[in-house]
């Protein structure tokens, strides 16, 4: 029977929803026994809740691991894989996940595949390649497999009625020559584009940084009327102009997203932008130029000036909220 280990990434004191999606893959696609692992400083407080999702939970608590140092995290994971005879390691394809996955794979002699968005079965994974212009179906040929699954691509696991066994382990704490000098935390409550159900993106058409405030208003009201996670995105033109931070950029050299709804506002739809968002379920474009290439991929479009369309949309949504 297959044994799968899932890394439960902790961010802002919670197990990330993306990690529960990885547990979902272990349960629904791979089958067999499902183990979880929590590593870091303060993770013990999450163990009872986390244990409800897995058959066995390894908890590696240490004050020394107050940051996801890749080497000790990977060595601790590799230790469990080897000791328990795990065949499959799953992690979510976040920055932390993509950093650790290949390192673990190298330590346990596994094949490592990141950004996986689908699986035919436990052996054949599917992921976007050549800038989202194709999907590769990849058969994993090595005995041990490391797969990083893209957030939002798979259904999350549900908590079980009974809890898995909790096993406390001692992590490796050699930080591998890495130390943290400073972390400027991003604003609390701001949702990352890769984890959002709805992304509202703005481009050069906004005309200046202050217009992102308008998009933030739209995000607030959308959050209220839909109850979904809504995040702010941007084109490279807006990022390069210094209007918004690169962490919001969608596209070739930004993030790849596939939310339920993608709003492209004042974005022309350059091929490098499409590379990051064309797999969104519904694309809604607002652009004053009817010839803008974004309309070729948009499911719905409004040809018009965003300075009128967006405030009107905000108003109409507010009315719905009230009623």
């Amino acid at each position: 029977m297959a044994k799968t280990l899932v890394f439960l990434e902790v961010l802002d004191g919670e197990v990330r929803s993306a990690s529960l999606e990885a547990v979902g893959v272990a349960r629904n696609i791979i089958g067999g026994e499902v183990y979880g692992i929590l590593i870091g400083s303060g993770v013990s407080s999450l163990k009872d809740d986390a244990a409800r999702y897995v058959d066995k939970l390894f908890v590696a608590e240490s004050d020394a691991l107050d940051y996801p140092y890749p080497l000790p995290f990977a060595r601790t994971i590799a230790g469990v894989i080897e000791k328990e005879g795990v065949d499959y390691f799953l992690i979510s394809s976040t920055v932390v996940g993509r950093e650790i996955a290949p390192l673990v794979a190298g330590l346990v002699d596994a094949i490592s595949v990141e950004e996986v968005t689908g699986m035919e079965d436990a052996e054949v994974v599917i992921k976007p390649v050549v800038s989202n212009k194709a999907f590769a179906h990849i058969k994993l040929l090595k005995e041990k497999k490391v797969v990083a699954v893209k957030p939002k691509a798979f259904a999350p696991a549900q908590a079980g009625d009974s809890s898995g066994e909790i096993v406390e382990i001692t992590p490796d704490t050699d930080r591998g020559g890495l130390s943290v000098k400073h972390i400027k935390e991003k604003e609390k409550g701001e949702i990352d584009v890769t984890e959002a159900d709805i992304v509202v993106s703005g481009g050069r058409g906004l005309g200046g940084p202050e217009k992102f405030q308008l998009l933030r208003e739209l995000i607030d009201v959308l959050t209220q009327v839909t109850g979904l996670k809504v995040a702010l995105g941007a084109s490279r033109a807006a990022v390069d102009a210094g209007w918004i931070d690169h962490s919001h950029q969608v596209g070739q050299t930004g993030k790849t997203v596939s939310p339920q709804i993608y709003f492209a506002i004042g974005i022309s739809g350059a091929i490098q932008h499409l590379a990051g968002m064309r797999t969104s379920k519904y694309i809604i474009a607002i652009n004053k130029d009817p010839e803008a290439p974004i309309f070729k991929v948009a499911d719905y479009g409004i040809v018009g000036d965003l300075n009128q369309v967006v405030p009107e949309l905000i108003e109409k949504l507010k009315q719905i909220k009230k009623s």
């Binding site: 194709a134 999907f135 479009g301 409004i302």
Partner: peptide, 30 residues
């Protein structure tokens, strides 16, 4: 010795280019 094999490539789901809406009301309806 290959560690993986690309079995096949498939195209991304086709986007037809959709509907142009005439008003914000129509967008809200959608």
């Amino acid at each position: 010795t290959p560690a993986y094999e690309i079995v096949k490539l498939t195209p991304p789901p086709k986007k037809e280019g959709g509907r142009i809406l005439e008003s914000v009301d129509e967008l809200v309806e959608v």
